[in-house]
Design a protein around this nucleic acid. Structure first.
Lengths: 239, 239
DNA sequence: TCTCCATGGATAACATAGTTATGGCAGAAT
DNA sequence: ATTCTGCCATAACTATGTTATCCATGGAGA
């Protein structure tokens, strides 16, 4: 589980190279020739194993959601379900900030940039990403967390799914704005926006300001366990 | 103000055609040859008036923020600042849902992280993407609205900017997820997610459940004035 | 062992789309 | 009238996704 990925087969190496190129070069890095030459192969490898760039991109998105799911799974439940929810939010944010290009691609924000060359028809039908089905797994983490919050009596009775939808909206929006640089690049946004936002939502759902604040502080202490504060180049023991 | 746009000069016609093609064909529609031929010109027109496709895209983004600003400006303040904030949120959502491709493009272009040296660097002036600077105007609407909310005493004292950042995160995330289809395509997400989210945030900031709910209902009645419920092809008296 | 076939992949050609070089034409300036 | 300037049509150039073709390799079966 902690072992470094061995080369494996060509398909895996292509996918791995593509993800690396995406992270380092942005969507521009996702070019058949670049990806193929990265592993010393010709472009045909892409077509043999994926069918084309759209399918390779789709595979990247799927892998991105798989990794997000993994990261969210590392959040262990405690006695404080609200704190657990906050921890989930921090883990979500950590994944997105550590893989900003990937995160954007997962939600179709960067892909449709018209590449040169021929058509592409993956995420663009009507702005409807294929990836939504994959996103369900990430959403499920939130539903579970909110079910525990609601069942704990800290908040009002409410449909956990709808509450989770609210929380996901908030986190998703926050993360995208932070990636875009709107909250600065020093990771200050977490304490200035994300944490207050989490407290606001918890209180809005019925928790008390005191309790929510205390849970937020508790998570702050836990949080050092996760990724570095958004600064690239830190130790990222992903996978 | 209600007059149909006259052809105007070539630059305007190009921009207009590009926005139309973006809306109808998605990002695929943003091709130099297509845009130019749409107005019966050659691709050179794009280069004469914009410099290239990246600059044309940038102009589209700028126009998108301008229109968003216009739409948000139509929300008239009333005696109920919380209701006004909700109305602002609905107007924001209406703009995004009526122009989903444009909205995605507005936020999809900022990829400032890897700082590629040469290619398409026009959006990163000094590390801060241009589109974010434009986004400031939209953000300002929220700051103003939240200042009124906070000053009204309905919520706790708080920095309006930080509160606005929370609200923007929530709306932005909600809108993107709704565009992506996660909340269904029937516009149900507004009452099932956006409205509860707004109430949660208001309550989280200090308002009472009763008052926030009442404000939300008041806006619901006002809201019919805006766009149709996200269904494309309705009457959109923009500009 | 030899033959045959299937699979993966290299080479190269093709189509598309951004970009650029060139030149002409109309109207303004002199 | 001449010259100059700006707009833009034409066509060429380049990069990129895609496809056609062909070769190599390795396993199955005789």
């Amino acid at each position: 589980m902690v072992s470094v990925d061995e080369p494996a087969n060509t398909r895996e190496r292509l996918l791995e190279a593509a993800i690396k190129l995406l992270a380092s070069n942005g969507p521009e890095g996702l070019q058949a020739r670049k990806v193929a030459s990265e592993i010393g192969a010709s472009t045909m490898a892409v077509y043999t194993h994926f069918g084309g760039m759209p399918q390779l991109t789709e595979a990247i998105v799927r892998e991105g959601f798989r990794r997000l799911d993994q990261q969210l799974s590392t959040v262990e439940p405690t006695r404080d379900p609200v704190a657990d929810l906050f921890a989930l939010g921090l883990a979500y944010r950590a994944h997105a900030l550590d893989n900003p290009q990937l995160y954007r691609l997962m939600f179709g924000l960067s892909m449709p940039l018209p590449r040169r060359g021929t058509r592409r028809n993956l995420l663009t039908a009507a702005g409807v990403p294929t990836d939504l089905a994959e996103g369900q797994t990430a959403f499920q983490h939130l539903v579970t967390a909110l079910t525990r919050v609601i069942d704990s009596g800290r908040t009002r009775k409410e449909d956990p799914k709808r509450a989770a939808a609210q929380v996901w909206s908030a986190i998703h929006g926050y993360v995208l704005l932070e990636i875009a640089g709107f909250f600065g690049r020093d990771g200050r946004g977490v304490e200035q926006v994300l944490q207050p936002l989490g407290i606001s939502l918890a209180v809005g759902l019925g928790d008390t300001v005191r309790a929510a604040t205390r849970s937020a502080r508790a998570v702050q202490r836990r949080a050092v366990t996760f990724q570095g504060e958004g600064q690239p180049g830190n130790t990222t023991p992903r996978r």
